[in-house]
Design a protein around this nucleic acid. Sequence first.
DNA 1: CTCGCAATCTGCAACTCGTGCAGACAATCA
DNA 2: TGATTGTCTGCACGAGTTGCAGATTGCGAG
Lengths: 152, 152
Amino acid sequence: MRSPADLTAAFRQQGLKITPQRQLIFRLLHGNEEHPSAEALYELASAQMPGISLRTVYQTLTDLASMGELQVLSLAPGAQRFDPNVTDHHHARCNDCGQLRDVYVERMLDIEVHGLDGFQPDGAAIVFTGLCDVCATTRPSADLHQHTNNSK
Amino acid sequence: MRSPADLTAAFRQQGLKITPQRQLIFRLLHGNEEHPSAEALYELASAQMPGISLRTVYQTLTDLASMGELQVLSLAPGAQRFDPNVTDHHHARCNDCGQLRDVYVERMLDIEVHGLDGFQPDGAAIVFTGLCDVCATTRPSADLHQHTNNSK
DNA sequence: CTCGCAATCTGCAACTCGTGCAGACAATCA
DNA sequence: TGATTGTCTGCACGAGTTGCAGATTGCGAG
Ligand SMILES: [Mn+2]
Ligand SMILES: [Mn+2]
Ligand SMILES: [Zn+2]
Ligand SMILES: [Zn+2]
């Protein structure tokens, strides 16, 4: 996602208005690596702008996504996550707390794929599952399967 | 997922009862490669057993999943998909119709991963996106990137 | 084979996440 | 400053899934 200033210009150029709500959301997202949900962003936004509507947060996120400024991730049950990082990258998801972190993968083309016959791929996403550093120490590196808890 | 007969034995062994509803669902899932949603399975089941409850379908799916007989896929917004194929495999998802197909990937270990520091992975899932054969011919084909070649 | 209990099934309410809608509101520009 | 849109907000609604309770039934004991 581009900087708040660049986004402001881009919105203006498209005939979209610059509102304090949008500007706030631009700021909250810029450089944000937490892959927040709409609700999470709403909480952040509400702290700085009491009265802002969750509907507005959703609307702005949708606008940004359709402008290609952020990607929407649906990697697990529950709320979608929004990612202002639109570079080519992948994710690791904690089975315990749901945290998402960025992962960069190289030599993807070295893999051998069977069964795509007739399918025209335009991309591939890798999601690593496991335990994040925090949850790994909290829980003695026990069972590596079976748990599917979600964060709240 | 094992055969209906094997599952029947497994359920009995765990003190779970064998009901006609469960047996029907075993049969509908065995060898099913369509990655159906709960609703889709409910439709199939209703055809053979009018009056069966959607709730029961969900319940049985949850039971099977917690026994490790099937995996639950949340790869996109919308309903979860259920996969009786628990071998090591991956998926390709059509952007147009949502169809999921199995994909087998080899030489995964050849990839180079950065950013996992401290994260303890227990698995990785690849999802290819694009157009399935049907939708690709229906629609004008958009030019693809080179993310995924090496098909065999 | 019948009985009785616990597991299961069913229908419905409730819940989460997201979208549609309409009227109040406000950014922009003449 | 006023007119013109686009935007914001609050609420209703919809999809997907789970919680609950009463009716039903599998199945082991007798
Ligand atoms: Mn990311
Ligand atoms: Mn599969
Ligand atoms: Zn964690
Ligand atoms: Zn398709």
